[in-house]
Nucleic acid binder design. Structure first.
Lengths: 193, 193, 193, 193
DNA sequence: AATGAATGAGGGTTCATTCAT
DNA sequence: GATGAATGAACCCTCATTCAT
C-alpha cells in the first residue's frame, strides 16, 4: 500500500473513530453527519465520498468496533494469567471486549436493516464462540466452572455483565462493588459455606 | 373530581399510554409528536395543552411507567411465595418490574436533561430501596443470601438481569437457559459441591 | 363547503397555480420547493402539508392543468362558430387547450413514475377523445375533412400543432405565419388548384 | 496534427459523445458530470480540462450535434431521390436531421443563457436555410409545393414534425399513421377531390 | 379546551466545481 | 495533462412547536 492509499485509509479511520465516539456518547440517531464531519475535520461531502450514506457509515463503524473488540478479546483469552483474572478483566475492562456489542448499535441495525445484522452475527459466531469455548474449557479443567452449566448460560452472564458495565451511568456506580460482583459471578448470591 | 376533570384526566392518560407504547416499540427519538397524536386520537396541539413540550411528555411517561412498575414490584415482594420464587419472578417476568428502568428512557433523560433524572432517581430511592431491603432481609433469614454480600451488589445483578432480559432480542435467546441462569445467580459459575 | 374549507381550497389552488407557472416557465426540475413557496407566499412546509412530496405536487399540478384545458376545449368544441374557426382557435389559442399536454410534464411523469401517467392517459381517453370525435364528425359533414383520413392522424396534427405553438420560443416566430400554417393544415403544402 | 493532438482530440470526442448520449436519454439536467466522466472513462477533472464548465460542455455537445445533423441533412437534400421521398425521410427519419433541434437542448440554452442561443441560431441560419431553399425550390419546380406558401411556414411544419416525431413517446404511437400523416402534409386535412 | 394550519430550524444527500499531487 | 480528494451551496424533506380560530 503506497503513501497515497495510506493517507486515504488514515482519513477513513479518522472518520470512523470520530463517528464511533459520537455514536457511543450521544447515540446513533442524535449524531448528525455534520457533527461527525466537524469532529473529523472534514466536510460533510467527504464523508459521503467514503461511505454511501449514514447507514453505511454506522454499519462500518460497527464492524470496525467489533473487529477491535475481537482482537482485544483474543489477547485476553490467550494471555498468561489465571482463569479468574481473565474473567475479571473481561467483565470490568472499561475497554470494549468482544463479547459485548453496544446496545444501541445492535438495536439500530436489527430494527432498521434487519438483514445486515445477520452478517455481524455470523462473524461473531465464527470467531468469538471458539474463543469462548477455549476459555470455558480452561475454566472447567481448573475447577472454576461447574461442568453441569451450559456454555450458553455462562456466556449470557459474561455478555450481560460486560455490556452493562460498559454503560457510563452504570460504571460510575459499581466501581466499589467490583469485589462483590465478581464473587457473585463465581459463587452466586448464596455464597458457599 | 367532577366529570369534567375526569374526562380530562382520561385524555391525558390516553396520551401517556399511546406515547409509552410508541416509545417502547420505536424508541424515544424515532417517535414524533404527530404519531403520538394520531395514536391517541387527538390533535398535536392538544398534547401541548397537557405537556409543556416533548421532553416533558417523555418525563411524565417515564414517571407513569415507573409508578406502574413499582406497584407490580410491591405485589411481588409482599406476595406469599418462597424467596427463590420471588427472585425468579423478578428476573424473568416479561412484565416490567420496578428494579428495571428501560434503557433508552433512562439514557435519554440522563444524557439530555441530567437534572431531571435526579428527581426520578430520588423517587426510586425512596420507594424501591425499602422494598429491596425487605426482600433481601427475608432472603438472608431464610439462608438464601450470603450475608457478607452488599445489598448494592445483589441489587446490581437483579437490575441488570431483569433489564437485560427485557430486551426483545435477548429474551428470545435465553428462554431455554432459564434454569441455568437462575442457578448461576444463586450458586455462581463455580457451583457448589 | 364552509368558509374554512373554502379558504383551504383557495390556498391549495394558490400553490398549484404558483407551481404551474413556475413549472411552465423553468421546467419541472429547475423549480425548487422553496421557489414555489415564495411565489405562493407560504412556507415550504405548508406545501408539504398539502402535497405528500414534490412528485405529488407535480402530479396534481398536471391534473389541475389537464382539467382546466379540458373545460376550455369543451367550450370550443360546442361553441357556435364554423368548423374552421374552431380548428384555428384550437391551434393558435395561446391559452392551453385540452389536446395539448405540456411536453416536460408528460416526459417527467412517464420517465420517473411511469405508472401514474396511465391514470392521466385514461382520463384523457375517456373525456377528450369523445369531444374530438364530435368535432371531426362535424368537420366531415361540412366537407372540411377528408373522410378517408383516420381520426388519429388528424388528432396527431392538432396535438402537435397546439403543443408546439404553446412553446414560448416558437410562438414568437410564427405569429406572422398564422395564415399559411392554417392553410397548410387544411390544404397541405401542395395546395389546391 | 501530431499524434499527441490527435489523442487529445479523440478524448474530447469521447467526452462529447458520452455526454450527448446521456443528455438525450436522461435530459440535460438529470445528467451529472460524474456520470459523464464515468461513461467517458475519464476523471471529472479531465472534463474540466477540456470544457470550462457544465454549460460549456452542453454548448459544445449541442454544436457537435447540430454539425452532425447538418451533414446528414445535406446528404438527404442532395440525394438522388424524388422530392416526396426526401420529405418523408426528413420527417420520419428516426435519425436526427438538421431541421430538428432537440427540444430540451434548445430550451435549456434559450432559457438559461439566451445569448449563446443566438450563436447557434446564426450558424443554423447560415448553413441550414440555404439547403432548405434549395429543397423547396426543387419542390416547387416539380409541382409539389404551392408557390404561394412562404418558406417559413413549410419549414415550420417540417421542423415541428421531425422534432415531434423524434420523441420516444410519440414515435411509438404514430408508426401506423405514417401514410396519413404524409398525406396531410401534402394535401391537408381537406384532401383533394 | 381543541384544532387545522403554518413555520423555523435542522437533517441527509447530491452536485458542479476546485485543490493538490 | 490527469487524477483522487475535497468542498460550498443547494435541494427535498421532517419535526417540534406556535398561531389563529
Amino acid at each position: 500500500m503506497d503513501g497515497f492509499q495510506k493517507r486515504k485509509e488514515q482519513k477513513k479511520r479518522n472518520i470512523l473513530e470520530a463517528a464511533q465516539q459520537l455514536f457511543m456518547t450521544y447515540g446513533v440517531q442524535k449524531v448528525s453527519i455534520a457533527e461527525i464531519a466537524k469532529k473529523a475535520n472534514v466536510s460533510q461531502v467527504t464523508i459521503y465520498n467514503y461511505f454511501e450514506n449514514k447507514h453505511s457509515l454506522i454499519n462500518e463503524v460497527f464492524i470496525y468496533y467489533v473487529d477491535e473488540a475481537l482482537k482485544e478479546f483474543e489477547t485476553t483469552v490467550f494471555s498468561d494469567v489465571p482463569f479468574p483474572e481473565k474473567i475479571k478483566k473481561m467483565i470490568f475492562s472499561k475497554k470494549r471486549v468482544a463479547n459485548e456489542i453496544h446496545h444501541e448499535f445492535y438495536e439500530y441495525l436489527m430494527k432498521e436493516y434487519s438483514n445486515d445484522g445477520n452478517y455481524i452475527e455470523r462473524i461473531y459466531e465464527e470467531k468469538a464462540v471458539p474463543y469462548f469455548t477455549h476459555l470455558f474449557n480452561e475454566g472447567k479443567e481448573e475447577g472454576y466452572l461447574n461442568p453441569e452449566l451450559s456454555h450458553e448460560a455462562i456466556l449470557f452472564y459474561l455478555k450481560m455483565l460486560s455490556e452493562y458495565i460498559q454503560r457510563e451511568d452504570v460504571y460510575r456506580h459499581i466501581l466499589p462493588l467490583t469485589e462483590d460482583i465478581t464473587r457473585i459471578f463465581f459463587y452466586g448470591i448464596m455464597g458457599q459455606d
